[in-house]
Nucleic acid binder design. Structure first.
Lengths: 238, 238
DNA sequence: TTTTGAAGTTTGATATATCAGACTCCGAAG
DNA sequence: CTTCGGAGTCTGATATATCAAACTTCAAAA
């Protein structure tokens, strides 16, 4: 992790900000958190491994303060556990990932049910368009586009549901990254299955059928989750 | 928020602390987190209110380091939002609490489904006993006992489901405290309704009917959640 | 009167020093 | 040989100092 980060144009009495920095400067702790999270989810730490704060701080080239903040966040997410005065332990393993899938499925189900009740005309229209675009991308096997559309689809449902907290929680239950995503989406059969599911969910929401939307969403998330699980851990469980 | 929180032998390390706190001494940040969480959930901060780290630290009589750690945890829970370089904002309000109920319901549902599949004989037996005891306590209107048994009931289901992460997430979705709990459980009609629901859930788990256990649990959590919501916020929404 | 911009103030971000609990390990006593 | 204990070391917990971004304010210019 690089120490330097303030090479932005240092407000030199110019206009009030024309150049919006794309990524907006994140706090150091957020970099650290992201870095650690990725490392944990990639299995770079053995499950149960004791971590040393000082060593980690040194390795990441930051002081212990932002590191500690990042660790507290990861602790709140459940990825690590803190034994007071004794250190940190990584809690993430295949079983944990499996529970993340279940949590994600449960939460997305709840959101889908909300969306079926609350979606306005605009949201329904956008959702339909997204699914239509997804159909095209699936035919063309445009993986990158498909990944983006997938996020878009779920994001639109979240917005239609007017859920903030639920959406946040869902976002926390993601244990795979773009690499795994590309691997998954490469399977054309799976893409077609996913498209079927997406259409079904969309239809249920349009029909205001909250129960069906919820059930379909749950099944969809669990199915694709298991796929990711096998991609990341190379195994499946019942 | 009351100003007093730390009568621990803080400050000088002069005397070697003769009074040993009974349980494992919690880290200061955990005290701070609990205190802040309670204050937020009690509505002691206006929603949207900007918070000042230094002022908070001073009020709680701790330095900014443990305070920051506590804030990061609350941020990860979604109760506060951090605007980088600009401060903290409390995000909790009635709408947030409502989403917490939905999240809790969704997660407890998932756990109940797992429990129906995974519960062993011992777990089933304990669950049955707990429900029986709850029936007695309900008859006697033993509120304190009922509250304890209620936690016990859900705890046993969590254990039977062998869920760790899901149980953690559920625990985070609690916006009421013992005070609200006592208020709710005072209503005898509600206690009977809750008992009915608990029995039904127990029966579904014993019958290995995951779908029914899940559905009943979801309905139970949502119903009682709405009750808490009205107790805490004095209003309900659809 | 409105606008702007620069200095001063506020406040979060980061680094570092220090404190104290917990572990290790070895030697002495039983 | 086993057990107990205490000194030394490791490491997390806490406090504090410093840095830098963002906000405020006020005066000067248009």
């Amino acid at each position: 992790m690089q120490r330097r980060m303030g090479n932005q144009p240092t407000r030199q009495a110019t206009r009030p900000r024309m150049v919006l920095v794309p990524g907006a400067r994140l706090a150091l702790r957020d970099h650290v958190r992201h870095q650690l999270r990725t490392a944990i989810l990639s299995g770079n730490f053995a499950p149960g491994e004791r971590l040393n704060e000082r060593a980690l701080a040194e390795e990441l080239e930051v002081s212990t303060t932002p590191l500690k903040e990042a660790l507290r966040q990861l602790e709140a997410e459940g990825l690590i556990e803190v034994l007071p005065r004794r250190g940190l332990v990584v809690r993430y393993d295949a079983g944990f990932a499996e529970e993340m899938i279940l949590a994600r499925a449960a939460l997305e189900s709840a959101i889908a049910a909300l969306a079926a009740r609350r979606a306005d005309d605009g949201a329904i229209e956008r959702l339909g368009e997204t699914v239509a675009t997804m159909a095209e991308a699936t035919e063309k096997a445009d993986i990158a586009h498909l990944i983006r559309l997938n996020e878009c689809f779920h994001g639109e449902i979240h917005r239609a549901a007017q859920s903030v907290h639920l959406a946040r929680l869902v976002a926390q239950q993601q244990f795979y990254d773009d690499t795994a995503r590309r691997v998954i989406h490469r399977d054309h059969n799976d893409s077609r299955a996913a498209l079927e599911e997406h259409s079904g969910i969309c239809a249920a929401i349009v029909a205001r059928d909250a129960d069906r939307a919820s059930a379909l969403m749950g099944a969809h998330v669990q199915r694709s989750g298991r796929l990711y699980l096998s991609a990341v851990f190379g195994k499946e469980r019942s």
